[in-house]
Amino acid sequence: APVSAPASAQERFTLRFNHVLGPTEPYHEGFQAWARRVQERTNGGLTMRVFHSAQLGVEEDIIEQMRQGANIGQNTDAARLGTYVKGMAVLNGPYFANTIEEVARLADAPTIKRWQDELAAQHGLQVLCFDWVQGHRHFYTNRPVRKPEDLAGQRIRTPPAPIWQESVRALGAAPVAMAFGEMYPALQQRAIDGVELVWNNIPGGRFNEVLRYASETGHILLINFQVVGSRFFQSLPAEYRTALIEECRAAGQATSRVIAEREQQVRQQMIGRGMHIVDNVDMEAFRRAGAKAYEVLGIAAERDAVLREVGR
């Protein structure tokens, strides 16, 4: 006998998902793959539309809109979430995680679960997953950087959040807060001396035109968080919520692997276009210097707690 679909599945939902990266970045492809899978699994009940280049607005504005119940999502990072739940900033600290596998394991750490619950219950932000890894951040400059002292007096563009600023300061540079899009002209006019980014940002932003050296310090593994408003999340039927989260993790892990592979190609391509890789970077010295950031921000205990839980 024909059975009518459950009431919850008859209602249709739309999620508009915003990110600041360009349409040719692997993330954009990844988000679209995630959207396709969610649509398939929910038989079109939940449609995700992906907006690149921050078309829907400034990241902080979008986060605020989600908290007020808008059916919007955002690709963000632990530094920004750390302004709501302080401890979360550790995920964005110097030399915190090293590999994609380590990041996947972090999802099971009880402390991180507790932070996510607090974020959802008290601040209205639901983390769907954080399996999206853009790779290691390195310093790109016009002077070779081998040890923290080489960064002294160098003005390095850094995202405007305390954990970013303190991390870069701890590593020896003078952080300059600046939006992503302003970096190229600032470098061209030498308003800043360098940037700290992942390899995959370099060709997109055309930074090889204005920067000569890549010093592979790998000081931060850039982990991104996919977040929606808890009110919107709770309004979804249970199976849609599961689909949204599971497909987020799958697409994120697949995209992170694609990025890791592409990173090697990009690196070779940039060397071909005249960028120099600085060899013999003193990693031990950078690790020691980076530890200072956690002390300054008062989150050293939180870092130790999470690392203990994942057995490091």
């Binding site: 040719t24 190229y184 061209q188 932003g205 055309r206």
Partner: peptide
């Protein structure tokens, strides 16, 4: 040059800003 439109176009479209 410089012009904000060229910088936007170059970075979104992966075209040399120079």
């Amino acid at each position: 040059p410089p012009g904000i439109g060229m910088i936007l176009y170059g970075s979104i479209g992966q075209v040399s800003i120079g």
